[in-house]
């Protein structure tokens, strides 16, 4: 649609909201636009979205915003309460908590993104393939997801991290390992619902290969429910990472990952509450923002989803 850019605002909206879209692309954009309109009407979801954008910007701008280096130790000034020099105080090694939070945002949010990037495609492919191909492949794949689902998520991640070596990469892989089965389940359910629809049958008759049908026709249609799941999962990913850190198996010091910061500072909760509380607040804010956004998206995308 090369002429899109030249259209005025009104005609663009008309194009997007058209009841008789001329092309599949127009229909797709139209759906997205309606979604956005519905989402904008939900103040909580918007609050979540804005918070997330702010957090991401703050993390990206960490080198500009952070008043100190996140690793600079100042042993004689450890556990200093919030002051003009250190807005959020200093930690057990005299490092500036604000600077660590800003830099740590990159790691924590980066971990979340990495997990999603790993998990969503895998879950999508496995689920769609299982659902479309069916038969033995379906049964085997679903049993595998059963096994992973039957594991308590934290325990599996814990065992896995322990089996390799604690650190950010292991934590990402471990969380990904525990997070993919629900995605596969959702994608499979969606696939089953559309597998026998007329347009898939038509494409098949037109001679499209199985791979092509799965990749081009089925997967995009399963994306919607997957996005909801992802946005709801973000907060649980952050929390799992933090719990791993709490049990000594997540990101490791001196990394300013938020969960690791809380974990290593939790012993100060009585005498220097700000050291564990500041990163905990950061986790809370990010996690709540993702939850609010996810909740809003779920309402908009499909209000009846069960799991």
């Amino acid at each position: 649609m090369s002429d899109t850019s030249t259209m005025s605002g009104t005609s663009l909206r008309a194009w997007l909201l058209s009841d008789t879209p001329a092309s599949r692309r127009q229909a797709g954009w139209g759906r997205l636009y309606r979604l956005w309109r519905d989402l904008r009407a939900n103040p909580l979801a918007m609050a979540g979205l804005v918070t997330i954008i702010l957090l991401i910007l703050a993390a990206l701008a960490a080198p500009l915003l952070a008043p100190y280096s996140p690793d600079a130790q100042h042993l004689s000034n450890h556990l200093a309460p919030p002051s003009a020099a250190h807005w959020l105080g200093t930690d057990e090694l005299g490092r500036d908590i604000l600077s660590r939070l800003l830099w740590g945002g990159r790691i924590t949010l980066g971990m979340v993104v990495s997990v999603v990037v790993l998990v969503a495609p895998v879950g999508l492919i496995v689920g769609c393939a299982a659902g479309y191909i069916g038969g033995l492949a379906d049964r085997v794949l679903m049993r595998v997801t059963d096994v992973f689902l039957a594991f308590p998520r934290l325990i599996l991640a814990l065992a896995f991290v322990a089996a390799i070596t604690p650190g950010i990469t292991s934590a990402i892989i471990a969380i990904a390992l525990t997070a993919w089965p629900p995605y596969a389940r959702i994608a499979r359910a969606e696939t089953l619902a559309i597998r026998n629809s007329d347009f898939i049958a038509a494409t098949r008759l037109a001679g499209a290969s199985r791979t092509r049908i799965i990749l081009v026709h089925i997967m995009p249609l399963s994306l919607g429910s997957l996005i909801v799941r992802v946005s709801l999962d973000m907060s649980s990913i952050i929390l799992t990472a933090a719990a791993l850190g709490f049990l000594g198996m997540g990101a490791q010091p001196p990394s300013p990952e938020w969960g690791a910061m809380v974990a290593s500072a939790r012993r100060f909760i009585v005498n220097a509450w700000w050291v564990p509380m500041m990163p905990a607040m950061a986790i809370f804010v990010a996690s709540l923002a993702f939850n609010l956004l996810g909740d809003g998206l779920r309402d908009v995308l499909d209000p009846k989803q069960r799991s």
């Binding site: 103040p43 996690s287 709540l288 939850n291």
Partner: peptide
């Protein structure tokens, strides 16, 4: 509706160990 949502979502947005330690304190 909004208050209920934020209140209930807040519970699952705090790391459990933090909630537990705060509750103890």
């Amino acid at each position: 509706d909004h208050i209920v949502r934020v209140f209930s979502l807040a519970g699952s947005s705090i790391p459990v160990f933090m909630l537990a330690m705060l509750s103890l304190v």
